[in-house]
Design a protein around this nucleic acid. Structure first.
Lengths: 206, 206
DNA sequence: GACATTGGAGACTAACACTCCCCAATAATG
DNA sequence: CATTATTGGGGAGTGTTAGTCTCCAATGTC
């Protein structure tokens, strides 16, 4: 398959594919001559993956590059699997916290919630949570402790389901967890909207 | 308080505040002369809200403008409350679906899941879900029905909690639900990451 | 009265994700 | 074998977003 075939198979323009090649998001095809290369199914699925990650998961192309690099990295051991997965995920998103007194209070709340659940205390994740709590507070949105505990309980349900989708082979499991998480993040939020509408209709007696 | 005071209170540069004024994201201050205006606490919290919505919730300034406009709109009735809230939320995010055969299959899965839960069948939300399922499938990530059902169950838990934070007055409730949802979306995802790490440690016997 | 600050407005910038255009080399077609 | 289309490679240009910079005359402050 030549580049125009790849374009037809994925619905992405030739110009964009060339751009992805230049940016290293798509590996070069097998060169059959100086001005021709052939692409196969792996290229098709790579392109589809890039599109899903940018369009659905909302990642930037730079973040996609990082995720792809992490997936190509050997996961060392099954124990490190989720570790490297989360390094990829955290790197894919951003987050540099500021430092003031409101932030300290938010960070304290974050640590407390995590401790209560017996969750990991990865400082990257805790800092991010603290920053998000601070932002909500600064915007005048109050998040009671019981409310956050409900969110945490729901997160445990989701995480348990996430783990069941991972098979035993480290490489496939890494791929499944990283991509699955990134691609289901928007799904989780959409389901939340749907459930909200239903819950609100019930509450007003429809 | 003059504009430099507003800048100091919010940590946002004067140039950026002027930009927000121009863009209509921040109402003008009370003019005390031709070259001076005074700003109060409502301006401080408006700026903080804009920053939280862009930095934490990841909205574009255009989406922030739409959300703010929706919040200023009178919610008609308590019944329409979540309706207008969701119009604001859905508008704030985007999503125009494509039309092919994979999409039809994804749409069918979406309709089924929604029907099973007895959720609303707002076509905007269903279409969005279908598009997200299609993207995951195209990227080679398989989402079993049981897995989606688990996510849906968790969404119900979250939505029930969301509703408890809304008071009885329509205007305050609208604000709480819309902003609360937008600002807790990233929190939900962070909690998911944390719970995943814990669940994975448990699974590998740590 | 000297100096800083303000509102208002236009121009400029950097990052992002393409998109267009050109080239010489090659492939396909008649 | 001649003509036409397509390819890889790469530079330059585009539109959007979210600011940032510069300038002005009017005003506030010491």
């Amino acid at each position: 398959m030549r580049i125009s075939g790849l374009a037809a198979a994925t619905g992405v323009s030739v110009a964009t594919l060339k751009y992805y090649l230049r940016e290293g998001l798509l590996p070069p095809g097998r060169a059959t001559s100086r001005t021709q290369a052939s692409y196969d199914d792996t290229h098709v699925s790579r392109v589809r993956l890039v599109r899903a990650l940018t369009e659905s998961a909302g990642l930037s192309l730079g973040a996609v590059r990082d995720v792809l690099a992490a997936l190509d990295d050997p996961p060392a051991s099954r124990h490190d699997l989720l570790g490297s997965a989360h390094r990829a995920l955290v790197a894919a998103e951003g987050g540099v916290p500021s430092e003031d007194e409101e932030w300290d209070a938010a960070r304290h709340r974050a640590v407390e919630l995590v401790a209560e659940r017996g969750w990991c205390d990865d400082p990257l994740l805790v800092d991010r949570l603290a920053e998000q709590l601070r932002a909500a507070g600064a915007a005048g949105v109050d998040l009671p402790g019981d409310y956050l505990r409900s969110l945490a309980a729901a997160a445990d349900v989701v995480a348990a389901a996430d783990l069941t989708t991972a098979g035993p082979e480290p490489e496939a499991a890494l791929r499944q967890v990283v991509l699955g998480t990134l691609l289901t993040d928007p799904i989780v939020l959409t389901l939340r909207r749907m459930a909200q509408v239903r819950a609100s209709q019930e509450a007003s007696g429809v």
